[in-house]
Amino acid sequence: MSTKLELERVTKSYGDVVVLDEVDLAVADHDVVCLIGSSGSGKSTLLKCVDLLLPIDSGRVVLDGDMISGPDVDADLVRQRLGIVFQSFNLFPHMSVAENITLGPRKVLGVDPAEARDRALGLLGRFGLADKADDYPDRLSGGQQQRVAIVRALAGGPELMLLDEVTSALDPELVAEVLGVIRELKDEGMTMLIATHEMGFARDIADTVCFLDQGRILEQGPPERIFGEPIEQRTREFLERIISAGRL
């Protein structure tokens, strides 16, 4: 199986604060890798660095054999190959659902508007949102907005999806519908790198779980091992905190 994404000794700091400290990480084709770790451990930063929304200080990011970090890379071109979804949806409030989804294909890929809309409707239908195409985001529930955000990220036909705590801003009863969409993507073979606080979900869906601690990947492996018999003391402490908070 070939490698879709590879990070080599990726380092990122804000001033004196080192947020990512020589991170090595590989995501194989069609695999789902979950990033877990306490707040501030660097999960969001890592995902944004992969999407080139933040510049890295040193190291390499390789996407499907292409080096995508560094000054000579056309970041806009790379971002078309990746889809990212944020905790806070960030839909464009002045556009309808369909316009949100077709903006990228129309303006970036030059897809004909009618065709872009057809494809958007197809995607919306698959995720149970067919009747929402012409609504504006403020008319949708949080769960619906987040599913639209996922569809928007999918519309450009990404090779890899990056999901940053996509259920954290949702009411508990809305979490399941969004997780369902992600499961469906996995079944279709989408490669995904997912930062999450939902440990049950991570155990369920991940091929590999990475425990991030103070900007370093302290431990990684199959979910059964990370959740069942963690080696590192700090992983154990983290999981105990999660369990006592009732989240596992």
Binding site: F86, G104, V108, A153
Partner: peptide, 12 residues
């Protein structure tokens, strides 16, 4: 975050 979203779908 609106700009970040726009850039993330490939807009310049």
């Amino acid at each position: 975050s609106q700009v970040m979203s726009a850039r993330s779908i490939g807009l310049t």
